[in-house]
Simulated scan of single mutants.
Amino acid sequence: MNLIYNIIITIYQFLIVLNAMFNSKSKEWLRGRKNLWTDLELKTKNKKNIVWFHCASYGEYEQVKELMKAYKLKYKSHKILLTFFSPSGYLNFKDLNIVDFVFYIPLDTKHNAHKFIEIIKPIKVIFVKYEFWFNFISKILKYNIPLYFVSVVFRYDMFLLKLSWFRNNLKKITHIFLQDENSADIISKHEFNNFSICGDTRFDTVFNNAKKIKENNLIKKFCENSFVIIGGSTWRKDEEILLKYIKKFPEKKYIIAPHELNSLNKLQKDTHGIMFSKATLENIHKSNVLIIDSIGLLPTLYKYANIAFIGGGFTKGIHNVLEAIVFKVPVIIGPNHHKSNEANELIELEYIEVVNNYYEFVTAVKKLNFTKISEDYIKKNRGAVKKIINAI
């Protein structure tokens, strides 16, 4: 099975190189790693007590940010090295006060895993969610370095869990911090004993972020005295529903923050919206649509919304609904939400409405306009960071 895994990694590398000829994200994936080894050796030379945190992308970083802050407070002499797999994480990372080093993770080949570990010599490694890179895992454990996975969720239909090779590798991990009891039940049946239930660190992150958000006078002026719908992390299928609604209800205000920024001009043409980067206090009311053309601003905007339409429910899966819920903003999502524990819970509480088309969206807006959200949901689910930090 190791051979098959390494063949898959080689094929993946070939496909990235091929795709880079047509795709800017793949091109950046390669470009960002061009001088990785030189930079890594130069910046970490003679540095001791390095603790390596790894995230796939920016969303996973937001999930683990409060844990990194807590770790920094507990272990002041340790150096935090953060890696990303995706350019969307690396390029939009700005919290340099939290970490000491930030890099791309190299592709998970045996050679790269060995070289990376030899250079940084970490004393601990923390991977977030599903970053199961098995050459790295093997090399980390070979050197007897504690390896932790945080905020992990397992499901009964997870194909990899059916493979004994996958399960055996995971059983070697020092500890797996799970989000929920369902995940614990699943891996207990496979005779795992290296896990505990700690909850989702995102609850700590969104709660603490919400307390620190400052007033944005430009957004406040745009939204004043209006019913505001925010489209958060939207994809094209989400935006098609929003476009119909905007034309039908022009009296409302709309803020759209696309998940990808490569089709902003088309979105602006379709909505006649104004780009946030071009907005001023003088021109902010020239359109009823404001397009957020940067990454990282979205979590600070939900406080101004009456309703949030969270994207991804018509593609691979919904994005973070907690960022809106923490501000007591009811949420609309598409049908692909089943992998989100918190979304499923919030649907039962009737804080979230699921829609399959434009007509259901119209009905959902009318219904949620009268929804009042309690603070209790976020408060009772906080505390994962404290549980993890006490264990590592």
Rank of each mutant, 00 (worst) to 15 (best):
L3H: 07
I4S: 13
I4D: 04
Y5C: 04
N6P: 07
F14D: 05
L15N: 05
I16F: 10
V17N: 12
A20H: 14
G32R: 07
W37V: 06
D39M: 11
L42V: 05
L42R: 04
K47V: 01
W52H: 08
W52T: 14
F53H: 13
H54F: 02
S57N: 08
Y58I: 05
E60R: 01
V64K: 02
E66S: 06
M68Y: 11
M68D: 06
Y71H: 07
Y75T: 07
K76E: 03
K76L: 03
H78A: 12
H78I: 03
K79S: 13
K79D: 07
L81G: 10
P87N: 00
F103N: 03
Y104K: 04
Y104H: 10
I105D: 04
K115H: 08
I117P: 12
E118H: 02
E118K: 08
P122R: 05
I123S: 13
I123W: 05
V128Q: 04
E131W: 13
F132R: 15
I137V: 15
I140W: 14
Y143G: 02
N144P: 02
I145D: 09
V150G: 09
V150S: 14
M158W: 04
F166E: 07
N169M: 08
L170D: 13
K171H: 08
K171E: 02
I186N: 01
I187N: 12
E191D: 12
E191H: 13
E191F: 01
N193C: 02
D200C: 08
T201S: 09
R202F: 07
D204M: 13
T205H: 03
V206D: 10
V206Y: 01
N216E: 15
L218T: 15
K220Q: 15
K221N: 12
C223E: 12
S226A: 15
S226G: 09
S226W: 10
S226Q: 11
F227K: 10
V228D: 14
G232Y: 04
S233N: 00
T234L: 02
E239D: 10
I241Q: 01
I246F: 00
K247Y: 01
K252H: 06
K253W: 02
E260I: 01
K266N: 01
Q268H: 02
T271W: 02
T271Q: 03
I274M: 13
F276W: 07
S277K: 11
L297R: 13
L301C: 09
K303C: 11
G313A: 13
H319G: 03
N320A: 13
V326I: 12
K328R: 14
V329M: 06
V331P: 05
V331S: 04
G334S: 03
K339G: 06
N344S: 12
E345P: 06
V354R: 02
V354W: 01
N356H: 02
N356T: 00
Y358V: 08
Y359E: 09
K366F: 08
F370K: 15
K372T: 14
S374C: 03
D376S: 05
N381D: 09
G383S: 13
K386A: 11
K387A: 15
I388D: 11
I388G: 06
